[in-house]
Simulated assay, not measured.
Amino acid sequence: METLNVCLIGTGRAGMIHGRNMAKKIEGAKLIALCDPSPENLKNAQIELGVEYIYTNYQEALKNEEIDAVIVVTPTAYHKEIVIAAANEKKHILCEKPLAMDEQECLDMIKAADRNNVKLQVGFMRRFDESFQEAKKIVDSGAIGDVVMIKSLTHGPSEPKPWMFDISISSGPIGEVNSHDLDTLRWFSGSEVSSIYSIGGNFRSPEVKEKFPDYYDTVAMNLTFDDGKLGFIEGAQYVQYGYDARTEILGTNGSILVGDQGKHKLSIATKDGEIKRPAMHSWTYLFKDAYVSEDQAFIDCIRNDTEPLVTGYDGLMAVKLVRVGLQSLQEKKIVLVDEKGEE
């Protein structure tokens, strides 16, 4: 197959990660187009990436018959319309997480991709991280026996943007950071979640409690799986010390730890008798190589006509579990996951 021509839709911080990869690091692909409603973002991205075509309207971009695939990195509210339009134009799609606003939107997008025989990959980059992939191989080999419990956490350092305090829009940490953990647990367990119990609280932004009484910045989630496995997820925003993503898989004969709080594999000993380690500062740094692998895998699955490692169904289940987890938190009870996103 010839080189695949790619269009990046959305040139913000996350979008430019994919843009730089496609422009310089991915075999079998060429970034030929950019689309963004912001003329300033578009101009800056074009100067840096040197692409031939630029568009402020995605519908115009999709009319370009030279484009074989698109990467969608826009606000979630626009994912459905863009992905369905791209599928109808026979463009393969890599869509950043979350896949959509709700499960029905996800189903509509999956159906559009299936109907048009195009690939739909969802951007859960942890599945492409070298350490996470090695852990999955070890789990699948049986080296730690049968998996009985999986724990995963994500702590984000940044102060929430004003819109995030409204959890009807953001879903709080469960949606903002823990969707990665939910996908990680499904991946390592090889099973579907059967129930979720969530508890949480607002510990770092007391000034918004009156206006947003339901806002929470810290959450703990207990999960059970259809096959009896146990799960635990911890999430937090505005931790300030750094970005933190770690997973532990416990088996009947051993365990695996994935991730580290340190930015580098070094410790600094000083004359005052203290040992210091720089903390990981950003997800963009921690998962830099994972994004390259993710983008390469997207191109490879198109060229080889194989199923993406992260499918539309995986994206659908993450959206569903975020909803169930938030429902549990708000209703202060265990919520059963009684449907699997199928009609």
Rank of each mutant, 00 (worst) to 15 (best):
I54A: 10
I54W: 09
I54K: 11
Y55W: 14
Y55D: 12
Y55Q: 12
Y55C: 12
Y58G: 10
Q59L: 15
E60W: 03
E65D: 15
E65Y: 10
E66F: 07
I67L: 09
I67P: 00
D68V: 03
D68M: 02
A69D: 01
A69S: 09
A69L: 06
V70I: 14
V70W: 03
V72W: 04
V73K: 02
V73Q: 08
T74E: 01
P75M: 03
T76G: 07
T76Y: 04
A77F: 11
A77C: 09
A77T: 12
A77D: 10
Y78G: 05
Y78S: 02
H79S: 13
H79T: 12
K80T: 11
K80H: 00
K80Y: 06
E81V: 04
E81F: 06
V83I: 15
V83K: 06
V83A: 12
I84R: 13
I84H: 11
A85E: 13
A85L: 11
A85H: 12
A87V: 01
N88V: 01
N88D: 01
N88L: 05
H92E: 05
H92L: 04
I93A: 09
I93H: 04
L94C: 05
L94V: 10
C95I: 09
E96L: 00
K97W: 10
K97T: 11
K97Q: 13
P98K: 04
P98G: 08
P98C: 09
L99E: 09
A100T: 07
E103I: 11
E103T: 11
Q104T: 01
E105M: 06
E105P: 05
E105Q: 08
C106H: 07
L107K: 14
L107F: 06
D108S: 11
D108R: 08
D108Y: 05
M109P: 10
M109V: 14
K111F: 02
K111M: 01
K111W: 05
A112E: 02
A112I: 06
A113Y: 03
D114F: 04
D114T: 04
R115K: 15
N117Q: 07
V118N: 07
V118C: 02
V118A: 08
V118R: 05
K119F: 04
K119M: 01
L120C: 08
L120A: 05
Q121G: 04
V122F: 00
G123F: 05
F124Y: 13
M125K: 08
R126S: 03
R126H: 10
F128Y: 15
F128L: 02
F128S: 02
F132R: 00
F132V: 02
F132L: 05
F132Y: 15
E134Q: 14
E134Y: 09
A135D: 10
A135H: 06
K136H: 08
K137V: 11
I138G: 01
I138L: 12
V139S: 09
V139I: 15
D140V: 03
S141E: 10
A143S: 12
A143V: 08
I144E: 07
G145H: 12
D146Q: 14
V147T: 04
V147D: 00
V147Q: 01
V148H: 10
M149W: 03
I150F: 10
I150K: 09
K151W: 13
L153R: 08
T154W: 07
T154I: 12
G156C: 03
G156W: 06
P157L: 06
S158Q: 13
E159A: 15
E159T: 15
P160A: 09
K161A: 14
P162N: 13
W163I: 13
